[in-house]
Simulated scan of single mutants.
Amino acid sequence: MENMLQNINSLGLETSLTLDDIPNIDLYMDQVIQLFENNFNDSKRNQEDKILTKTMINNYAKGKLIFPIQNKKYSREHLILMSLIYQLKGALSINDIKVTLSDINQKIINDEIDLDSFYTSYLQLTGQNVIDLKKDMEERVKDVKKEISEAKEEDSGNLEQVLMISSLVHMSNLYRRVAEKLVDELVVDKEGKRQK
């Protein structure tokens, strides 16, 4: 627990696919996989983990999480969507991701969105989230230490970590549930528009 900030810094939380990382030419599947592996390598929990595979990409296409591919090549917009999917799949079901991205996919098809601008906003928010997390973690460490000291546990080292893990998982679940509620509201909004 003493090295919490060091641990956080080692996780590659700032890792993202920036607009500068995305080439202005369409890429074949193997090139897309290599781009994601190179850019998200620092965020892997284990080195053998795969960031993106052919099966994943095919499932995204078949599941309509991304708009149709042309000539077996993936555009800049496809790569941005896959980056969003990569982040969303850590907390949401594939169906929830499909609902979340369906309007964006339609706007891309209709040429009604400046996706670069939207993605830039997303990257700015995620950067701020990492800063906020680091500040919040300092407070959580203090809170856990206080709880353990008040409980007067003799072997507090392991208990501190278990309490911290439990607290973090609970917070993660709270955020996930709020996100799922927002997804549900998207479904209600779409159904309401269809009925009109």
Rank of each mutant, 00 (worst) to 15 (best):
M1E: 04
N3V: 08
M4E: 11
Q6R: 15
N7R: 04
L11D: 03
T15Y: 02
T15Q: 08
S16N: 09
S16C: 14
S16A: 10
L19E: 09
L19I: 14
Y28C: 01
Y28F: 15
M29W: 12
Q31M: 02
V32C: 11
I33M: 09
L35E: 11
N38S: 12
N41Q: 10
K44C: 07
R45K: 12
E48S: 08
D49G: 06
D49N: 13
L52Y: 01
M56E: 09
M56L: 09
I57H: 02
N59C: 03
Y60G: 04
Y60N: 06
G63T: 02
K64M: 05
K64N: 13
K64A: 08
I66E: 00
F67P: 03
P68L: 05
K72R: 11
K72N: 15
E77G: 04
L79F: 08
L81G: 01
S83V: 05
I85T: 04
I85H: 00
Y86H: 14
L92A: 06
S93M: 01
I97N: 02
I97W: 00
K98W: 03
V99N: 01
L101F: 06
K107R: 08
D116P: 02
S117A: 14
F118V: 15
Y119T: 07
T120L: 12
T120G: 14
L125Q: 15
T126E: 11
G127R: 14
N129Y: 05
D132A: 13
D136H: 07
M137E: 02
M137A: 13
E138I: 10
R140H: 12
R140M: 14
R140C: 03
V141Y: 00
K142L: 08
V144N: 05
K145S: 08
S149Q: 11
S149R: 06
E150S: 01
E150D: 07
A151D: 14
E153H: 01
E154M: 11
S156Q: 10
S156N: 10
G157E: 15
N158P: 01
L159I: 13
Q161K: 15
V162A: 12
L163K: 02
L168N: 09
V169L: 13
H170F: 12
M171T: 07
S172I: 15
N173I: 03
L174Y: 05
L174F: 06
R176D: 09
V178C: 04
A179V: 06
K181I: 03
L182E: 09
V187G: 03
V187H: 10
D189C: 08
D189F: 10
E191F: 12
K196L: 15
